[in-house]
């Protein structure tokens, strides 16, 4: 894999009247060519600041920004502008030019390149087809829906044939249905044009849908990073677990346990166990094996299958009933079968 964006020890502090705001603290990330890379975090975590450090809309006071082999902090302003043409960016609020038509908006970044009218026209028409808005080319942004506006913004960002598309909360102003259509479009662009995508979002559902890798940000730091499936399967940090729980009901169980709900009340010889498995149909055989071999009863109180990047991750919340030693052995057997085990209550 070729590394397209390499951020090394990026630090960005804003000096405000109310003191220094450490928006990004010593963040290092590598984004490979062709990847869809998600950066997730709650509002204020520093995601926007970090992504803006990639195209130097914000200049980090420490660190290196290596894009396509060049250290962007070491080149001149003029060279930087040329590098920026290789990076498209889209925003939460689209940022289209109100006084220009859809066509003119898409042509806008081409106007300062040395391209003649016909070349520009050809490129704009290609892009209009890509975003499926050919018939709206003479409309003004005020006449478009949110989803259509974001499509136009995507076309505009792609006009100069960039190597990467930076998306800062690109779907956060859209309804769930429109969000899906924009995500599908980004997926398609990633596949067909081999375009690298950096997705900033606070929605785990977005990451789950299209990202290959994800970095989780909290208080200006990347606290967890990895392949999307493994992050989903084995989240390490509380904030990551929190985000994953927003896409299913697993968080509810913790609440029930916390509140000592009758549903999760257990006896001395019982334990509440979370089992997580990644490959298809192992769970059922496992559960019958547990009762057979270890004399432990296993009842399921909650089950969930998460599809991450087309690969399923199953989660079962179960109550194990049996002798303490036997339960311990049963859990070890589960671990030996690549099932992630977590004792939630005993």
């Amino acid at each position: 894999m070729i590394c397209l964006i390499n951020l090394k020890h990026i630090t960005k502090t804003f000096n405000t009247k109310d003191g220094d705001v450490h928006a990004v603290k010593d963040v290092s990330l590598q984004i490979d060519e062709g990847q869809i890379y998600g950066i997730i975090g709650f509002s204020g975590a520093g995601k926007s600041t970090l992504v803006r450090c990639i195209n130097l809309l914000e200049k980090p006071e420490h660190g290196e920004v290596i894009f396509d082999g060049k250290d962007l902090l070491k080149i001149t302003e003029k060279e930087l502008r040329i590098e920026r043409q290789k990076m498209g960016m889209i925003f939460q609020h689209f940022n289209l030019m109100k006084s220009r038509t859809v066509y003119e908006n898409i042509a806008f970044p081409l106007r300062h390149l040395k391209m003649d009218k016909e070349q520009i026209d050809k490129r704009v028409m290609e892009l209009l087809e890509l975003i499926d808005l050919v018939e709206r080319k003479d409309s003004y942004p005020s006449q478009l829906s949110g989803g259509q506006k974001q499509r136009v913004a995507i076309a505009r960002a792609l006009a100069t044939k960039p190597k990467v598309l930076l998306c800062d909360e690109a779907t956060s102003a859209l309804d769930p249905h429109t969000t899906q259509s924009i995500l599908q479009l980004i997926k398609k662009i990633n596949k067909e044009l081999k375009l690298t995508v950096v997705m900033i979002t606070h929605e785990m559902a977005v990451v789950k849908e299209i990202c290959d890798r994800v970095a989780v940000m909290e208080n200006g730091r990347v606290v967890e990073e990895g392949d999307i499936v493994s992050v989903f399967a084995h989240p390490q940090m509380p904030v990551t677990k929190n985000f994953i729980n927003t896409t299913n009901n697993l968080g509810k169980i913790d609440e029930l346990i916390e509140a000592n709900n009758p549903l999760v009340q257990i006896n001395e010889n019982q334990q509440i166990i979370k089992l997580q498995y990644q490959s298809g149909n192992t769970s059922e055989a496992l559960i019958s094996k547990i009762s057979r071999d270890f004399n432990v009863d296993c009842s399921i109180i909650f089950g969930n299958v998460e599809v991450v990047k087309d690969s399923p991750i199953g989660t079962l919340i179960t109550i194990f009933t049996g002798d303490h030693e036997n339960i311990k052995k049963a859990l070890q057997m589960c671990r030996d079968n690549d099932v992630v085990v977590e004792v939630m209550k005993k």
Binding site: N55, L57, R81, M89, F91, M97, K98, S99, F108
Partner: peptide, 25 residues
């Protein structure tokens, strides 16, 4: 502000932004 940032992200310089964004828009 977003329009200006979008233009900067496309590689426009300050004078192009004055002309094509601030004044034109």
């Amino acid at each position: 502000r977003g329009l200006v940032e979008a233009s900067q992200s496309m590689g426009f310089g300050p004078f192009e932004i004055i002309w094509k964004v601030y004044l034109r828009e």
